[in-house]
Design a protein around this nucleic acid. Structure first.
Length: 428
RNA sequence: GGAAGCGUGGCAGAGUGGUUUAAUGCACCGGUCUUGAAAACCGGCGGGGCUUCGCGGCCCUCAAGAGUUCGAAUCUCUUCGCUUCCGCCA
């Protein structure tokens, strides 16, 4: 959520910056609602003050045993008027709030202006794609004999669900363990285990609601169809970031660095027909997530650091990748700046997204009321950052494709062998 | 699932319709004193919002929501959470 003060003081500038990401800000609408709000709020508060004063007088009169009927008569008409004023105010305030919640974040000045993914800027390329002496297979064909089973996944749950069996299942687990251990042991993140079902208000905090409800899985408690709205998390960014909601952190508590391995559930509405083959795009996938709650002055540095943390995983796995700065038009809703990590997939002969690291600035913090007491004792919004470190399913895909051998086996990356009981190769 | 009880500011804790615009203590911050500290004393000390150049003024907030009332922490209803007991259960 943007700072409403910024909209009040510098509306045109905000509109201009949002235009860079392809968002048209309805400035006339805001100005109109804002002046309505101001008038209604002033009126309502006047009436409340009047009521409070009169009630106090009545109390005093009664205590002294005096006759209060004159004041009572005077205040009698106030009730209806006040109620009407309150309702009118709440109505316009609700409209403003909903509107504010639907506005994306302002891009940082350092973000390249652009329309879509074609305008993203490559920052660096690391590692050299290996050349194969044989025709490379994609992960579906490499994985099938090793226990990657789409057919059973579909039988159980429909399209975009997968069953992993045997060595592949273990490799998948090894990847997650390796990532989690690396982030906790060498990057200073605190391991967390969090709920996979969260309340709607939590999703307002991180920005999935109200705009992106169609991307989520909503769940219902048996026998409680009228119960509160709850959703499966689409990333553990949601639960990790919201751990600091409605709190005021001490200066010395920053930065808070959290990590978790969790499944992620995404409806993938709007991506029908895209990446239908294989496990690139699933309704359920695992991810190791990094989250930082940072001092505003430190958040951009923290973003660079976090990208580095994600890169370490790819480097240790010896997977070629590149780092890309997303342009204004391709960034996510709440981000001020985003780097994507794209891993080399030989079968597709291209780099594919495997991690996304973003600085959300105070956008989520304002929605969550997550603050810290600054150097001057003032409460300030924290900055929140999140990054995949990494998407486990896609990492599995990358390992299968990059480590495949002519005989159909897959070499286990050296760093994963301790997690595989020393196994060096997955053999059909 | 059944029964009972309880949710007040960072913590403890008063407060059962109008001197509570939430007492008091602890913690915390500033000051006096002190070589320094402790103690003592003085002052400050939750959060959100509106308004003002500023000083300030005002509104909301006692788990959440709704209601009764001129007036609600206090009364009523609903929801949520916690505690204890019983039942069931990985």
């Amino acid at each position: 959520m943007l700072d409403i003060q910024l909209l009040r003081t510098d509306l045109q500038q905000v509109a201009k910056r949002l235009a860079g990401r392809g968002y048209v800000l309805d400035t006339a609408l805001f100005s109109q609602w804002e002046s309505e709000r101001k008038a209604l709020q002033t009126r309502m508060q006047e009436l409340q003050a009047q009521r409070n004063a009169s009630s106090k007088l009545i109390g005093e009169a009664k205590r002294k045993g005096e006759d209060a009927s004159a004041i009572l008569a005077q205040v009698a008409t106030l009730g209806d008027e006040l109620k009407a004023a309150e309702q009118a105010f709440e109505a316009v305030q609700a409209k403003l709030d909903q509107w504010l919640l639907s506005i994306p974040n302002l891009p940082h000045e350092s973000v390249p202006v652009g329309k879509d993914e074609h305008d993203n800027v490559e920052v660096r390329k690391v590692g050299v794609p290996k050349s194969f002496e044989f025709d490379v297979k994609d992960h579906v064909d490499v994985g099938a004999p090793l226990g990657l089973d789409f057919e059973t996944g579909t039988k159980l749950s429909g399209a975009r669900f997968t069953v992993l069996k045997g060595g592949i299942a273990r490799l998948h687990r090894a990847l997650a363990q390796f990532m989690l251990n690396t982030h906790t042991e060498t990057h200073g993140y605190r391991e967390c285990y969090t709920p996979y079902i969260v309340n709607a208000e939590v999703l307002y905090g991180t920005g999935q609601l109200p705009k992106f409800a169609e991307d989520m899985f909503k769940v219902t408690k048996g026998g409680d169809e009228q119960g509160p709205d709850q959703y499966l998390i689409s990333t553990s960014e949601i639960s990790l970031t919201n751990t600091v909601r409605e709190s005021i952190l001490k200066l010395e508590e920053l930065p808070v660095k959290l990590t978790a391995h969790s499944p992620c559930f995404r409806s993938e509405a709007g991506s029908y027909g895209r990446d239908t083959r294989g496990m690139i795009r699933q309704h359920q996938f695992d991810k190791v997530e990094m989250v930082q709650i940072a001092h505003p002055e430190r958040s951009m540095a923290a973003l660079e650091e976090m990208v580095g943390h994600a890169e370490v995983i790819l480097k240790k796995l010896e997977l070629p990748y590149r780092v890309v700065t997303l342009c204004t038009g391709d960034m996510g809703f709440g981000s001020t700046k985003t780097y994507d990590l794209e891993v080399w997939l030989p079968a597709q002969n291209t780099y594919r997204e495997i991690s996304s690291c973003s600085n959300m600035g105070d956008f989520q913090a304002r929605r969550m009321m997550a603050r810290f007491k600054d150097e001057n004792g003032k409460n300030q919004y924290v900055h929140t950052l999140n990054g995949s470190g990494l998407a486990v399913g896609r990492t599995l895909v990358a390992v299968l494709e990059n480590y495949q051998n002519a005989d159909g086996s897959v070499t286990v990356p050296a760093v994963l062998r301790p997690y595989m009981g020393g196994l060096e190769k997955l053999v059909p």
